[in-house]
Amino acid sequence: MNQAEISKLVSQLRVRVNPRLRKLKSAGGPEARLDKLRKTVTALIKHERIELNYPRADESRMYAERLISDAIRYGDCHRETMEMADFWLIEKQLVHKLFKVLAPRFVNYSTAYTRMYTAPSVYPEVVKRAVLELRGNPYPSLVPDMHNNRNLIHNVLLDEAKKAYRTQKYEEIAAKIDAAEKSVSEEARK
């Protein structure tokens, strides 16, 4: 039993990893495919929210997740991680952003570092579109906030139901205390 535990050799990603990689219709072969993905990963780290075709978004999401996860795990003094960052980020100032901004931001996250939505496509186009974003970005949310907005009708109803339940419970407790006091005073009279 001298085998290393394989699951600990690479960081486990919190997104689903495709068993087969997509070729992304690259005329130049695997190298051109990687070039495409590098462009997307760089753009994602730079802009924090991008809209693009679904397959490319899904593919580059895995590489971006792996890059951030390594940056958190090994830090900026690790040579291999630095080489990977150098490879994936075309604009070199983003290497600083990766280690100084994104790694501290995501260090305590228990979820994936990116989020992906399917985006609508305008009618004559039938290509599936997607929005890919880093979590904790400064932009307004893409989906309505159904939880924190307490003015939405279901939240109003639930809050009022909670209040009603609490009042009922307090009344029950008060009744119990009254009953206990009564029995004590009756005993004292005897």
């Binding site: 003015n151 939405l152 009708i153």
Partner: peptide
Amino acid sequence: KIPQPTAVN
């Protein structure tokens, strides 16, 4: 689902 839906409710 607007931010202030009281009137709509």
